[in-house]
Design a protein around this nucleic acid. Structure first.
Lengths: 226, 226
DNA sequence: TAGATTGTTAATCGATTAACAATC
DNA sequence: TAGATTGTTAATCGATTAACAATC
């Protein structure tokens, strides 16, 4: 499918294109130019064309891009036309939030099971899925052809469980634990570090405050100079 | 505090430095060189030194960096030495997951309230916090000196609520809804688009598969040539 | 055909890495 | 003092933007 290595920056943008194309499709827009899309998404048209051309020519000179076609192709590129069997390790609020997020199934992600260590949770049923203990984890992964796991457990348990997952043949880990997991080269880890996201927000709101204060100061200085 | 505009790439890395420094501190490490830290974090020592020097010289030639000092300074830079009053809009699983995440309070984020539209949730108590309806949102924000809001509601309601938050004086939105919010220049939005994160994982696991298949193919070709 | 807009090459910009003098 | 390691400048690398010929 791909010729050269696609850069991380491009990959990050792909799902956003997909989202906007989906919205366009829903609102009945049939075709769109890179220029029009660039305005809506607040990126440059050049970037859109460059990004898309990493995967092939989906447009037509003088016409633009067919929304439905491009949407489908993007879905294929993102791999959400295929089925991904997923388990969730950690059945706390976060794990349950993921299990309850209905749209996932629409995009080919099938939640095959939920696991937890906490005996009080084991046996409970969330969205028709029974919460299991981690004892039979390996067997369950093999029996149910599971390729992906969401890790919504505390950071202390995460590395150990990750190793078990990898040994059982899991190919992708969606990691919500606040650790950097070490996995073999052929296993993919996507981190969602919420605490880091919140710190970035904190940083940005503080530096915005500083900026505004400085602007205020320099205004006052200007006044005094006059 | 800052002289020039700090790049987005640097800001993204800051919380990770903070996390590693915290771990070093916990394990009793007193000082660390950029080289040693670079090995642990799998980044270049050059990058660490460049990143830190955006904010000033925290190290000492021939010695390295004092872990405790650097940790504290990083906390200050990230703004987590101050108190941030936060409300959560959307008391579903995701909102509750955030409310239950204890570490936040340790880092200066005080959850001042939770809100929801669903009448069945209103009145419930999560972690000692009563879930309220959104009618008195504006008044509550003013009365409780709230600067930040986490938005864990469906995308259809998010833009409307975001506007109300901004008008009520909120300065930072932690946005979990799958929309790009439009806010004034002095308001900061940090997006956590989980569905996009999952699509990136999907993309990466698929392209890894393709890569491995190709390697397999070219191996077989080599065999046949022999 | 003329106008529009892509695909793609070239130019620019910024971020990362390398190197090393300063200095603890 | 000698060795180590920073802070910082210079070199490299990659990503973004601009430009335009190709073409629908």
């Amino acid at each position: 499918m791909e010729e050269r290595e696609i850069s991380k920056a491009v990959i990050t943008r792909l799902p956003r294109y997909y989202r906007y194309l989906g919205e366009l499709l829903e609102s009945g827009v049939e075709r769109i130019s890179s220029n029009e899309l660039s305005t809506r998404m607040s990126v440059t048209a050049s970037q859109i064309r460059q990004d898309l051309n990493n995967f092939g020519g989906f447009g037509q000179q003088g016409y633009g891009y067919n929304v439905k076609y491009l949407y489908t192709e993007m879905g294929r590129i993102l791999g959400i036309d295929r089925q991904h069997n997923l388990i969730i390790i950690g059945a706390g609020n976060l794990g349950q939030a993921i299990a309850n997020y209905a749209n996932f199934e629409k995009r080919g992600f099938i939640i095959k099971g939920m696991f937890d260590i906490n005996p009080r949770l084991i046996g409970l049923v969330v969205r028709g899925i029974e919460i299991r203990g981690v004892d039979d984890l390996e067997q369950y992964i093999k029996d149910n052809d599971v390729q992906m796991a969401a890790l919504t457990i505390p950071k202390t348990k995460a590395p150990e469980i990750a190793e078990r997952l990898v040994n059982a043949g899991i190919k992708a880990i969606w990691n919500f634990a606040h650790v950097d997991l070490t996995v073999p080269d052929d296993v993919v880890v996507e981190n969602v570090h919420l605490s880091e996201s919140l710190m970035r927000l904190s940083y940005r709101v503080c530096s915005m405050q500083d900026k505004l204060e400085k602007e205020q100061e320099s205004k006052q200085e200007n006044k005094q100079e006059k």
